[in-house]
Design a protein around this nucleic acid. Sequence first.
DNA 1: TAAGTTGCGTGATGACAATCACAAAACAAT
DNA 2: ATTGTTTTGTGATTGTCATCACGCAACTTA
Lengths: 210, 210
Amino acid sequence: MREKLEKYFSFVFEKELLDEIVQVGVYKKLRENEVLVDLGDKMKGIPLLLEGAIKIVREDKNGDEMLLYFLERGDTCASSFASALTNGKCGIRAMAEKESEIIFLPKEKLDEWMVKYKSWRSFVIDSYNIRLNEMMETIDSLAFMNMSERLYKYLTDKAQIMRETSLNTTHQDIAYDMHTSRVVISRLLKQLENEGKIKLHRNKIEILEF
Amino acid sequence: MREKLEKYFSFVFEKELLDEIVQVGVYKKLRENEVLVDLGDKMKGIPLLLEGAIKIVREDKNGDEMLLYFLERGDTCASSFASALTNGKCGIRAMAEKESEIIFLPKEKLDEWMVKYKSWRSFVIDSYNIRLNEMMETIDSLAFMNMSERLYKYLTDKAQIMRETSLNTTHQDIAYDMHTSRVVISRLLKQLENEGKIKLHRNKIEILEF
DNA sequence: TAAGTTGCGTGATGACAATCACAAAACAAT
DNA sequence: ATTGTTTTGTGATTGTCATCACGCAACTTA
């Protein structure tokens, strides 16, 4: 754990803070598709993502889903902050897109570290800002782009987060993330294939053009 | 300024912090429709909203707009934090919906106060969380609601922010905020009127049912 | 290898929203 | 009062996406 922590966070956190994190942090490994945070959950800590990829989705009362954004290593879940500090409920679901490793930080430390470590303050503020920007991008997609553009952005974004040029996924899964139907996704994917941007296989989409 | 500050922030900030704010804050009055922050702006401070209402809008390269959310008294602009602390550019436009009063806080103080005042830390974190939640609501609207529902939500939300039961606005202005056309808004408004939820006048919409 | 399951392809149809076109009403200016 | 401008109302048409219906291909299991 120390090793991975150093790898991605030694340029972010002071040495003393890294020491504290190792002391109080709880290491956890997530299997693919394991749910880290669910809708009404109250957080008892916040997660630092050491390795892997996590998707954050919003769900409405009908059970319809909408992908908000992905987290990658070095990220934290800003929504958890809310919930952790105010003891409120979390309005999102967080789910591992692939095997991931995280460190849970107890919520008692969050405020304490704000006073002690400048690097922690910067990290918290930066995390919020990155998340706000991701949300704005999501709103941009929904407001200004058509399905085909949104789909292509989804594919390239996800490929980047997963650090792969091929995605192992089904049309139906994409449809859930984008809150549309499988039929629509299949048609648009076929169209993107004809344009030479991707290549389709069963359970797999190869991205040819970024 | 001290008076208004006390009125809305005395339960939020410690006395010492209020004193500091009065010392270093710059009071400013905004006329209706005055632009507070524009797209590429770099912020030299962050605004505390004492009175009035401000709308935060996203704009894409084609100049198309999309309302993100409204700020009311007691709020601050979370996006400014980003821009202020990192010297980066702001991806939004902030515009007074009616005459408003704000206090500009110099960015140098932001981090300093994080260390000194617990109330400031809470305020910053709370502001971010409220903003994240607003963004999620906006995403919910776009992803899960049809135009008619979005429109009705827009009207009631705006009425609440403006503290009026009637809105002085044109169909065209609403269309800009919701990124659709005037024709669509006019038709849906007429429909809402037929349902008895609103009453239409020239340049004015009365909301009968909340 | 036969049967069952899951994933994908595609035509047909409908609903909602975008866009075009134009007229009437409300108001402002001369 | 006349003219011009802004705001609103409404029919007609088009485009995008949602939904239904169904067949086929790929993989799994017995």
